[in-house]
């Protein structure tokens, strides 16, 4: 099966001028050195390669400045790569942007595709016309999406009067109106509260699954990755440092388990337990177990022997910690 998104050795460099052009330094440049000597080249994306199959939900994770948004811009056709190949649904995004626009959708967390002063319903109506959706189909689809996303009365309010969470739900409806085959979401949950984040994740996952829509989601929030996606691509300093299933990421990088215990006694002397204590409180404690050096069963035996245990849970460390480790490892290997 042909890939929905295909990227090969993609590179994007930006030229950063060291000095602003003023009359004074124009003269200086003319008399002292060549203009190019002042420009610095910065690689935002440095030769990444990956493919995404139709219907796959992929998280694109990385720290600030890793190259996530730059990659999404190149995939959606609003930024031209310096070199390398990009193909989305068999089309080259920058040169076939107008045709590709009918088959893709994008939400950039901080930006709105809806018209700020218009009631949301009018914005959707306008989007329907722009995408050339027949009126009857548009209305049916809009009714279905409004019901699913629970927007109801929101639709008659101007976009400027909506909260961020409400606006994001309306943005997503705008995205799904023309039934895109590929959806790019760039930090869709940024600034949302826990409840709104959860709702957004559920809606995106559900819609993509039902409609067979390929999803590429960038986020700082590993919760987005775990809740919505099956696969994760981790990018750091413009390079792919991990590409695989979310479960594989855990298997490969989670070398530590956390033993969380609730005790019968309020205060327990844990000196006999030869494990690092992460957290200690009345009736509870958390221990770190390095599974590469310590047998988990032995660790549990030690803990069980040290106190009267009410409850014992073996947890994975938060995904943020795992990702941070990967970032740190790549930074060390590149000497950054």
């Amino acid at each position: 099966m042909d890939a929905a998104v295909s990227v090969a050795n993609l590179r994007k460099e930006f030229r950063v001028k060291a000095k602003r052009r003023t009359f004074a330094n124009l003269w200086q440049r003319k008399t002292t050195q060549a203009p190019s000597a002042k420009a610095k080249v910065f690689s935002a994306v440095d030769g990444i390669t990956f493919q995404i199959a139709p219907g796959e939900r992929v998280a694109f994770v990385g720290p600030n400045g890793a190259g996530k948004s730059t990659t999404i811009k190149m995939l959606s056709g609003i930024l031209a790569p310096t070199s390398g190949d990009v193909s989305v649904l068999g089309m080259i995004p920058t040169s076939e942007r107008s045709t590709l626009a009918y088959s893709i959708a994008a939400v950039f967390g901080q930006r709105s595709q809806l018209w700020y002063h218009l009631p949301v319903r009018d914005s959707w109506q306008l989007l329907g016309r722009i995408y050339g959706i027949p009126a009857k189909i548009h209305q049916q689809r809009l009714d279905t999406l409004c019901q699913k996303f629970g927007v109801g009365a929101l639709a008659d309010r101007p976009v400027k009067q909506l909260s961020l969470g409400e606006r994001m739900r309306c943005e997503l409806i705008g995205c799904f109106l023309h039934a895109p085959k590929v959806l790019f979401l760039d930090e869709p949950t940024i600034g949302l509260d826990v409840e709104a984040k959860g709702l957004m994740r559920d809606l995106v996952k559900d819609m993509c699954t039902k409609e067979g829509c390929t999803l590429l989601l960038t986020s700082h929030d590993t919760g987005d990755m775990e809740s919505v996606c099956d696969r994760v691509i981790i990018i750091n300093q413009g390079r792919v440092v991990f590409d695989g299933a979310v479960a594989a990421l855990r298997r490969r990088y989670v070398t530590q388990k956390i033993l969380a215990v609730n005790t019968y006694d309020r205060d327990v002397n844990w000196e006999s337990v030869a494990l690092p204590i992460l957290e200690r409180a009345a009736h509870s404690a958390k221990f770190a177990v390095d599974v590469q050096t310590t047998n988990l069963q032995e660790a549990m035996t030690q803990v069980l022997a040290a106190a009267k245990i009410v409850d014992l849970v073996v947890e994975d460390p938060p995904m943020e910690e795992t990702i941070k480790k990967i970032y740190a490892a790549t930074a060390m290997s590149t000497g950054a």
Binding site: S76, I78, S98, A101, F108, R111, Q113
Partner: peptide
């Protein structure tokens, strides 16, 4: 604001 580039994503 950079919205110009994002508006290029629309057909037309």
């Amino acid at each position: 604001s950079g919205d110009f580039a994002f508006n290029l994503l629309r057909p037309g």
